[in-house]
Amino acid sequence: MATTAVTSAEITSEAPRSDFGRVLAQRERRFAAALLAPAFLALLATTTFPLLFLIYTSAFRMDLAMPFTNGFVGSENYQVLLSDERFWTSLLVSLVYTGSTVALQVIIGLALALLVMDMKRGQGWFRVIAILPVVLSPAVVGMIWRTFMLAPEFGIVDFLAINAGLGSKNWLGDPTLAMVSVIAIHTWQWTPFAFMVLLASLASLPEDIYEAARLDRASAWQRFRRITLPLLRPAIVMVIIMRTMVALTAFAAIFTVTAGGPGTATEILNLYAYRKSFTELSIGYGSALAVALLIVTIIISGILFAMRRAK
């Protein structure tokens, strides 16, 4: 760019170089602003504005079923929230759901990536099949699992359970089993994501380090602990961060399977905010729950990003 300024300045006029540079820089800024404006206006309108409006509505009682009680209530929704048992339960369910699904995805995904990396043939199968779950709509995944996989007797999971001597189970009707089921469904859909990302970063690791380790007679476990794991750490942390954010706001794959039930057994905070707002039509309190979810998200991502920076 600097050379551009010099040559053009020589040709066109006697204007001082710095002035011309400034004009060019200014033009570049204007051009950038024009290119960015539509996207940023749209983002302001669809993200920043809703956030501000959400915080505003969380200070109101806004009951669509009983409009005559509506009005400004200040921090009342938040005070109610702090002593709302269902809120604390949903927060706990969120943490269990997120913690277990993310841990399972990373552990299974990493183990499989290591296994497939060692395979001389058949890697292609994994690369294709792993794509299938992750491109599907969680809503469709939820519907399939709820019916053809988990329905009593002819659902395949129940069929296998019966044949394994466990007997037919009410997979979605029993609180504990329902929680296990929604965790399993999320893990089923997203483990391929962790697998594919970790396999890609495994494949990009330098080969010669392993050669050296092998010459030093390092055991397979030592090679994994001392070489692979540290080199893979950034990728693993990235997977954890991305999957945590998604699991915290999981919606379709729970909504379609249990709708949060039985009772509130699988109601994560995200689902509680939805149900409060759109099933029970208490928009003001639902907004407060959504703000609480945002705060939880920020705290957890803050912790994860701190972990990422820490050695």
Binding site: L51, T57, L293
Partner: peptide, 29 residues
């Protein structure tokens, strides 16, 4: 392109993704 606030603009685009979708749909509804 080079312009002031470029870093912030990039960060803003990323940060918008932190907002839970349920927090967008309630006000937008």
């Amino acid at each position: 392109l080079r312009f002031r606030g470029k870093k912030f603009a990039g960060f803003y685009v990323l940060a918008t993704q932190m907002l839970p979708p349920v927090g967008i749909i309630i006000p937008y509804f």
